[in-house]
Design a protein around this nucleic acid. Structure first.
Lengths: 332, 332
DNA sequence: TTGACACATGTCAACGTTGACATCCGCTGT
DNA sequence: ACAGCGGATGTCAACGTTGACATGTGTCAA
């Protein structure tokens, strides 16, 4: 910047004014400065700019469990689409679902003095340590799952309602014994909510809840194995509700391997090739992009100074997409 | 930092020494400082630290076309896994495959003085403008596709070899008319390479190249339509080679809709549920995580001062996974 | 003619941190 | 007894930018 100023014969301050459209600058000076900037290939140093008095970094920090998971990738894309037009940079890190990594990532982001923090909390965490930051006015929003031990803004899917709707769909098609294939650990927020939705639907239909019909597994293989166990029961389910995408894939694989085309299935979260599966997979679709944009907008509105103490909570509704696998009638 | 220093009764410099394990500090002083740090909840300001004399930001910038695409998400995950243990933060942005957004993102990253730049270039770009930065010693590595108009490091898949192997697999199973379903625009690097591999395989087998068997589409629907056109030819192909994941999905969908279980298919890039498709999908799998880690390691090695002028280029080999759809014999 | 005012630009300091160099102290070896 | 040395700490400046305030110059109304 000093070089540019020297080249033009003005002070750094004037260059600064030109670059920021700040204060009055003679048209001619402006042009000469711009030319010098081009000639010297000058680029303002954002780090220095951001460092000025108490200023925060013009960036938003985002912590997701995994980059490779398209669900979270799409969430991140939604966040970016809102945040970038505002001139904010997105800094993403992944926690591998561990509270420890999550915390160290958050520490890095805080050290960078990001302007806002968005977190998909990992299962085991406790977010009390963020209270002070929140109280100090830093916008913090949790995505997909609420914070633990702390009242804070969040944006989540309509897990319970969605699950209820998905299971009700199976009930409507005549099923009375419906298996639940969930995530692990069972204490996971989304798992708990969806399980509640499952029970809601059973209750609404006057169906008994059978503990034996509930199985779990964290990855696709484990979910597959869970389905195999369910099908081996003396009085097996005629339909399955898979409470997340891995569970869905595991169920699809298990049913395909067993050659069981007669078992109905509804999955939570849409899959890319759902329509060409045999039978086409009925799902309760989430809207990950909407979760991202809604959360980002929440952060921005906080940033624009709405220091309201109260936590704001949003639910993004799900949508049942009936493709066939949920409409199979009960065998027998 | 000044507050901490005052609390302990030392200078900021001493606090700095404690925090960076720099220079000798009395054990007792160290402890008192650490305690004050905890008590006051002090967090070092990374922006300020990074700004010091000519220093660069302890961050790596990564530009990918799309966050929601699991291929690039996984690439990003690979990058992060290498970069984080080194204490570097990852800053990710997506370009939506447009040269314009890509460039503005790169500008932001340069303004932040990142320590390294990793770019998945969008189709239309020209990277001459980065020459100066590269010459100035900034590590720049391109991923998945090479730079345009500039000799620079890159890490790409073994596109041509992989495609050749995939198509050869079809030839081995007796196919003589093999359709090619590619990406658009046709000038896209990966598309060109894979197309070359396709022709290599035909040539190696002494099969004629038929222009009519080449179709394209950028998204899944377009690829589907392309497959429909191919099947409607007077002398239609008995097998298809889909040159990327959208093409694969489009082909799978088109074949399923048409009820054509007799057409052999090999896709480039693996899909999550490939094994449960009917028939199970044979693919030429890429290794996106390896692309990310290899590229990141390249950046780090450059960072550790290997200012060798020559561009370094790496290819990550692909792997044929035969599941069934490529082994169908030619109908008729 | 003069004061007021808008415009154009400059000066200075400060943000938080750390390199370079200086200072002080006590111990060791001769 | 004292030079020499290493350990512990301090002082100062600088990184690049921009707020707050100051200065200078020309125009216009009274």
């Amino acid at each position: 910047m000093a070089d540019v100023a020297r080249e033009v014969g003005v002070t750094a301050k004037t260059v600064s004014r030109v670059l920021n459209d700040d204060g009055p600058v003679a048209v001619e000076t402006r042009e000469r400065v711009m030319e010098a900037v081009r000639k010297l290939g000058y680029q303002p140093n954002l780090m220095a700019r951001n460092m000025r008095v108490g200023a925060r970094d013009a960036a938003i920090g985002l912590v997701i469990p995994e980059m490779g998971n398209p669900f979270f990738g799409t969430v991140a894309g939604g966040v970016e689409s809102v945040v970038r037009p505002r001139g904010l940079t997105l800094i993403v890190g992944s926690s591998s679902e561990t509270a420890e990594l999550e915390r160290s990532l958050v520490a890095t982001l805080l050290a960078r003095r990001v302007s806002g923090l968005m977190i998909v909390p990992s299962a085991a965490g406790d977010h009390r340590y963020l209270r002070a930051e929140r109280a100090a006015g830093l916008p913090i929003v949790f995505l997909d799952r609420p914070a633990v031990g702390m009242a804070a803004d969040h944006v989540v899917s309509g897990n319970r309602d969605g699950a209820r709707e998905g299971v009700a769909h199976l009930v409507t098609h005549g099923h009375r014994r419906i298996g639940f294939v969930g995530d692990l650990p069972a204490a996971l927020y989304t798992r708990r909510e969806r399980f509640q939705g499952y029970r809601d639907a059973l209750e609404a239909a006057g169906l008994p809840f059978d503990r034996a019909l509930v199985e779990s597994g964290h990855d696709q293989e484990a979910a597959s194995a869970a389905v195999v166990r369910l099908l081996a029961l003396p009085d097996p389910p005629t339909a399955l509700f898979a409470a997340n995408n891995f569970a869905s894939m595991g169920a699809v694989v298990a049913l395909a391997r067993a050659g069981r085309r007669d078992v109905a299935l509804v999955g939570f979260d849409d899959l890319p090739l759902a329509e060409v599966l045999e039978p086409p997979l009925t799902v309760v679709a989430q809207d990950p992009a909407a979760i991202g944009t809604a959360a980002a907008e929440l952060v921005l509105s906080r940033l624009d100074g709405r220091p309201s103490r109260a936590a704001r909570r949003e639910q993004i509704p799900t949508r049942l997409i009936a493709r066939g696998s949920g409409e199979l009638p009960p065998a027998r």
